[in-house]
Amino acid sequence: MDSNFEALGAALPRILDGVWITLQLTVGGALLAMLIAVTLGLLARQENILVRGFARAIIEFFRGTSLVVQLFWFFFVLPQLGVELDAMFVGILALGLNYGAYAAEVVRGSINSVPQGQWEATTALSMTSAQRMRRVIFPQAWALMIPSLSNLLIHLLKGTAIVSFITMADLTFRVDQLRIDTDTFFAYTVGLIIYFVLAYILTLVMNMLEVQAKHRLGRGESLREALSLRSPDTGVDAGEGARS
């Protein structure tokens, strides 16, 4: 067993390189997914049938095809068509498109869940549809969509493991390498623990975003209060804390 830990110590720099690749894919994929989700989510609500149809087609296509096959297609088929893409780029693209399509439904659903009265109030104040979305509806929808997005983000992190298929030395690849110097049980257990820690950190970050988003709507304590150990203040004090 001791030799396992010695081997782990020796492999640590390579494992950290793998964690770094996995994190780059996760963050890059999440940012692209969010961009795609908001764009498609908004387009899928348009009255124009062509615009809506376009958005729906993209959403259904990328939700309905396997992530692995998409990845292979971008990485092995595109070069045959003369388009050579960097592995990291392909990884982020496939993850972004796939999870973006799922998240687009979350964005669309959350926007539709903002109460009718809020939309009507913006009309009564003569706001344009862009002002309405940016300043009133989206900030409220954001608080509603965070729990589902947080779920998808964890899926995305775990989904990055398949990029080892396209020659990338991510965490899964490095864990697999560790097997050579240790044993299968040890190496994959280390892999489970590292993925769990990463996922848990992402969960904590998303929980903080949710606390903050709810606090902005006047519900619940501020992030600072949530993180501090002192007893929660009253709602009015919480409101004042947000301004300072």
Binding site: Q118, A121, M127, R135, R216, L217
Partner: peptide, 22 residues
């Protein structure tokens, strides 16, 4: 009837929103 104030804004932000942006 249901007021429909914007919960993502403070009281004064609710009032100045449209005068400023519209």
């Amino acid at each position: 009837q249901q007021f429909n104030l914007f919960p993502n804004m403070t009281v004064i932000e609710n009032i100045i929103e449209a005068p400023v942006h519209v």
